[in-house]
Computed example of a mutant assay.
Amino acid sequence: MIRTVFIDGAAGTTGLEIGGRLAGRSEFSLVVLEGDRRKDPAARAEALNGSDFAILCLPDDAAREAVSLIEPGSEVRVIDASTAHRTAPGWVYGFPEIVGRDTLASARRVSNPGCYSTGFIALVAPLVRAGLLPADWPYTCNAVSGYSGGGKALIARFEEDSDIAWRGYALALGHKHVPEMQQRCGLSIPPLFSPAVVPAHRGMVTEIPLPLTAMPNAGATEAMREALTEFYAGSEIVRMGTPPDDGELLLRKSRRPSDAMELHVFASPDGSQARLVAVLDNLGKGASGAAVQSLNLMAGLDETAGLRL
């Protein structure tokens, strides 16, 4: 069976990446609006309601508008790549390794995780569930991303100004990814999140420092490694990384597109401190790759079909 897919916002960075992953796949047929019809509400409503799947690659308000165009009784199943519905009731969070593949496969409304959130949740949620990290600790998350995560405007800014070496932002705190990070990890305190952008097109490193001796009921670092290894044992997408021999992790500008994510647990010799680190592609598992993974599951296909692993 060939399923129809409408990407609303197909000309944006995330939409283009999703389209590239679906191009040439016989299981799907893309519904395309040409020219001015891409912004015509009537044409969009027709495409949304007439498709088997709709993937929203839009700003938050536009994503909400798109959902409002879906008629009662419509059979279309939606994946929203915006922030609009990531903590909304009735929406399934599009992280199958965390929420369960069966839950994702049967969902009608799916909210795609944020890129930074993906790394944080992948590390913290399983360890909180396992009782190896406390749910009431004030976690800190430091992260850097390639500039493609900011869309066309930020891409142009970095490519036009080669003097930018580091761009820190969300300095007033309250970054839009924090609510999903807190909710999906079951935390009682919002994490303190410090994001930045570096002069690489793609790639992301997310880190959570842990002062273990000050944390009540925190487990040993080896137990954390074992728990994460077991938790992701059935995944071809999320995997535990091999500790580097030279003691350093590199995010290279020449990084190739990837839909995989690599996790690390680094510890001090005495086990008193640890650093949880996730390395991923902000456009892969951090955005478009995650959306295609969810689409595959919702369509009853192998979750890795069309992914770059």
Rank of each mutant, 00 (worst) to 15 (best):
residue 136 D to E: 08
residue 149 G to K: 04
residue 128 V to M: 09
residue 151 G to Y: 13
residue 138 P to E: 04
residue 141 C to M: 11
residue 142 N to W: 14
residue 136 D to G: 13
residue 128 V to L: 00
residue 136 D to R: 00
residue 130 A to M: 07
residue 128 V to A: 10
residue 130 A to L: 10
residue 158 F to G: 08
residue 145 S to M: 00
residue 154 L to M: 14
residue 161 D to W: 08
residue 155 I to N: 00
residue 124 V to L: 11
residue 130 A to G: 10
residue 131 G to I: 01
residue 156 A to M: 12
residue 123 L to N: 02
residue 163 D to V: 13
residue 130 A to S: 11
residue 139 Y to R: 04
residue 150 G to D: 01
residue 143 A to N: 07
residue 141 C to R: 06
residue 136 D to P: 05
residue 153 A to Y: 04
residue 130 A to H: 04
residue 125 A to W: 07
residue 163 D to H: 12
residue 132 L to P: 00
residue 126 P to N: 11
residue 154 L to Q: 11
residue 135 A to I: 12
residue 166 W to K: 15
residue 149 G to Q: 02
residue 149 G to A: 10
residue 141 C to V: 15
residue 166 W to C: 13
residue 158 F to T: 06
residue 152 K to N: 13
residue 146 G to F: 02
residue 129 R to E: 05
residue 163 D to N: 11
residue 129 R to Y: 01
residue 167 R to I: 11
residue 151 G to H: 13
residue 158 F to P: 03
residue 129 R to S: 03
residue 145 S to I: 05
residue 152 K to Q: 15
residue 140 T to R: 14
residue 140 T to N: 14
residue 126 P to L: 09
residue 148 S to G: 02
residue 148 S to Y: 03
residue 140 T to E: 15
residue 143 A to S: 14
residue 158 F to Q: 01
residue 166 W to A: 10
residue 133 L to W: 02
residue 124 V to G: 06
residue 133 L to T: 08
residue 147 Y to F: 07
residue 127 L to S: 11
residue 165 A to V: 14
residue 146 G to R: 04
residue 134 P to S: 04
residue 146 G to N: 05
residue 145 S to K: 08
residue 125 A to R: 02
residue 165 A to C: 11
residue 133 L to Q: 08
residue 131 G to M: 07
residue 140 T to S: 14
residue 157 R to I: 06
residue 149 G to L: 00
residue 139 Y to E: 00
residue 125 A to E: 00
residue 139 Y to I: 08
residue 145 S to L: 04
residue 127 L to Q: 08
residue 124 V to N: 06
residue 132 L to C: 11
residue 142 N to H: 15
residue 148 S to I: 00
residue 159 E to H: 03
residue 129 R to D: 01
residue 167 R to W: 15
residue 137 W to Y: 12
residue 155 I to M: 01
residue 151 G to F: 08
residue 158 F to E: 06
residue 167 R to L: 11
residue 141 C to P: 03
residue 132 L to V: 05
residue 165 A to K: 13
residue 133 L to V: 09
residue 129 R to L: 01
residue 131 G to H: 01
residue 152 K to I: 14
residue 136 D to L: 08
residue 144 V to T: 10
residue 135 A to Q: 12
residue 165 A to Q: 15
residue 152 K to W: 12
residue 157 R to G: 06
residue 140 T to F: 14
residue 124 V to H: 10
residue 153 A to G: 14
residue 127 L to Y: 08
residue 145 S to N: 07
residue 128 V to T: 10
residue 134 P to D: 06
residue 148 S to P: 07
residue 144 V to W: 04
residue 136 D to K: 09
residue 157 R to S: 04
residue 160 E to N: 13
residue 154 L to V: 12
residue 146 G to H: 04
residue 165 A to W: 13
residue 150 G to M: 01
residue 128 V to C: 02
residue 137 W to M: 07
residue 155 I to R: 03
residue 144 V to G: 04
residue 144 V to M: 07
residue 142 N to L: 15
residue 156 A to E: 13
residue 164 I to C: 02
residue 138 P to M: 09
residue 154 L to I: 14
residue 138 P to T: 05
residue 148 S to V: 01
residue 160 E to V: 08
residue 163 D to L: 15
residue 150 G to T: 03
residue 137 W to G: 02
residue 130 A to T: 06
residue 146 G to S: 01
residue 156 A to C: 12
residue 134 P to C: 01
residue 124 V to C: 08
residue 162 S to N: 13
